[in-house]
Amino acid sequence: MTHVHVVGIGMGPQHLTQEASATLRAADYALAVRKGADDDLLEVRRLICAEHGLPLVEIPDPERDRDDPADYPGAVAAWHAARVEAYADELTARGGSAAVLVWGDPSLYDSTLRILDRLGERPDLSGSLTWDVIPGISAPQLLAARHRIVLHRVGRPVHLTTARRLPEAVAAGQRTIVVMLGSAASLAQLDELPDWEIWWGANLGATGEQLVAGRVGTVLPALRAARETARRQAGWVMDAFLLQAPDEVHR
């Protein structure tokens, strides 16, 4: 039998829950993909594993078309299929109890649970692979905490999406939007929303954390500068933000 613990780690060691730490100490090893020669996020996972006496097994991340392909879902599906094969090789060879350390919380914009679903369907692992999930602190939680805000207005909904699909959400009439997986290029979309209010954060809870809040048209230059500061200090950027339309801000 092989068991996998999918462990949410927030933005690093400071966000591990007691349940997450106990799970890591009890596992036999951890699996993590390496994204290139200089993977700073892998080094954070390595630090967490070292603190818990857990060997870390690296898996080279399969290539993925990241240049905004016409068939984005197809590109992601192919990438997931390649990851399934890579994980299957290690899990069948090693067995035992493995941990997969997931940034933030495994329920939000992470492929690990989908990959495990597909692994469980494989003839060579069907019936012998089980897994559980240990929740972590998510980016929207950290964003709200840092800005000391509630993400939604009283009795109103909040829409959670990716930067790639922000224009679609606005066009559909969403008025309070949490956006994840941003990029420097995606900030250009905010030029179209100058009267909206934004609460933005980069590398929340980690090295180079940056916060900006205010009317988009006013703070966007400062936001772009803060994003570059976060990249310079940490070597990478993860950002998230809350947007509220003008007619939602005071409800």
Rank of each mutant, 00 (worst) to 15 (best):
R46V: 04
Q18V: 15
A172S: 15
D239A: 00
P73E: 09
P106L: 14
T23V: 08
W199E: 10
D89I: 10
R148L: 13
I115P: 02
V33E: 06
R46M: 04
R148V: 07
E43H: 07
S107N: 12
L151Q: 13
A171L: 09
G235M: 14
S107L: 03
P167D: 02
Q141W: 05
S97G: 01
R251T: 07
D247T: 13
A172H: 09
G12S: 13
L113A: 10
T162S: 15
G182R: 00
G95L: 13
R232E: 14
Y87G: 10
R66C: 06
L187D: 11
A145I: 09
K35P: 00
F241V: 04
P69L: 13
D39T: 11
V178C: 08
R25V: 10
G10L: 05
Q141M: 12
E51N: 11
L91G: 13
K35G: 03
A240L: 09
L142N: 01
P69G: 05
R46P: 03
Q244E: 15
C49W: 10
L31N: 02
G173T: 14
P73C: 04
W131T: 00
P194V: 10
A213N: 05
G36H: 06
C49E: 04
A163H: 11
I137L: 12
H80K: 14
R25L: 09
A93Q: 14
V249Q: 08
Q233F: 00
